[in-house]
Amino acid sequence: MISGFLRCGRVKESLWCFERNPFQNVVSWTAAINGFVQNGLDLDAMKLFRRMLESDVTPNDVTFTSVVRASAHLCDSGLGMSIVGLIVKFGFEHNTSVCNSLITLSLRLGEIDFAQRIFDRMEKRDVVSWTAIFDMHVEMGNLKEARRIFEDMPERNEVSWSAMIARYSQSGNAEEAVELFHRMVQDGYYPNRSCFASIINALANLKALQSGKNIHGHVSKVGLEKDIFISSSLINFCLLYKPSILRCNCHTNSNKFF
């Protein structure tokens, strides 16, 4: 009932149930704390967490994931470091979900080195871990390290592919962007809007007319031509040529990217 009320945003009702629950345990405490965080009541979540500790209830991994997320939302470095101390005290410093939350907290606070140390010491990493430490190096513009992590990732998704291609395109590494786009398509990943916009910009830099026409034909076929990011990229591409060039024969090879 506590979780149900909080999922519906009914905070008062959930607290009423929680306070009158004669069998309060880590599950009920965590449900209330997590619900507060999901409803944007991060300070209330931290107050409830303090009450939980004062009641001698031992937190679990879900509890710590929730309070770390609350700390990140509050952007309180002192609070965040206090939580880290408790995580170590209760033996959750190697828990994958907790570490992922700590990486997010560190990045939110601008603690880049700390985020990297957490990642390096993780005994088990999942796609969230890899993606977080990868979106970090990409944002920093550290392309060499970002590419190394990208290649080491055991599992990639459209977000990681698109982020790497976008950064290459934005930094003037058009050939690398095109090469990676080829690999993405060959590996069976479908480009998202951001990826299409990035590759169009890269092709414009390379003055690759035929490939640009193929991409234009494809985005038209799937109805993405009016997307604001894609249309802006297409306009920039068209400025290199007569506008009529891309309008003609746009159906040619429209099932192929290149």
Rank of each mutant, 00 (worst) to 15 (best):
L234N: 00
K213Q: 12
S66V: 00
K12Q: 12
G110T: 03
K256I: 11
M136F: 12
Q210N: 15
V178N: 06
I230L: 06
A32C: 14
T30K: 11
L15R: 13
W16Q: 13
F114D: 10
R121V: 10
N25L: 04
H73G: 08
N21D: 15
I103S: 03
N236F: 08
Q24G: 02
I230E: 02
L43I: 10
M184R: 06
F196H: 04
F196T: 06
Y241T: 10
K221Y: 06
N157P: 03
L41W: 08
A197P: 00
E151A: 10
F229D: 15
A32E: 07
Y168A: 00
T96L: 13
C75T: 13
L203V: 04
E111F: 11
Y168M: 02
L107S: 14
R148L: 10
M140D: 04
P191Y: 00
K221A: 13
A208R: 11
K207I: 07
I112G: 03
L224Y: 13
H218D: 04
G141H: 09
K124R: 15
G4C: 08
M140S: 05
F5R: 00
F196W: 09
Y190F: 13
F49L: 06
I118V: 13
L180Y: 05
F150L: 08
L209N: 10
L234D: 00
L109T: 06
G110Y: 00
D152V: 07
S71N: 07
L74A: 04
L15S: 11
K226Q: 14
K124N: 14
A204D: 07
S97G: 14
R10D: 15
A146Q: 03
N100P: 01
K12D: 15
D61P: 00
R156K: 15
S28F: 02
R148T: 09
R50S: 15
S232L: 09
H73K: 11
K89G: 07
L224D: 02
E54M: 13
E13K: 05
C195G: 00
F181K: 05
G40A: 01
A115Q: 04
F237A: 12
A208Q: 04
F257C: 02
D44F: 02
V128T: 12
A132Q: 12
I165C: 05
I235E: 12
S160W: 03
R121K: 15
K124C: 07
R10P: 02
E123I: 13
I200V: 15
R183T: 11
S14E: 04
R7F: 01
E176C: 10
L209F: 14
L41V: 04
T252F: 09
Q38E: 14
M184Y: 04
C250I: 08
I103K: 01
E54F: 05
V159P: 02
T65W: 02
F150V: 07
I228L: 12
C75V: 12
V88P: 01
M153D: 07
T30V: 10
L224P: 08
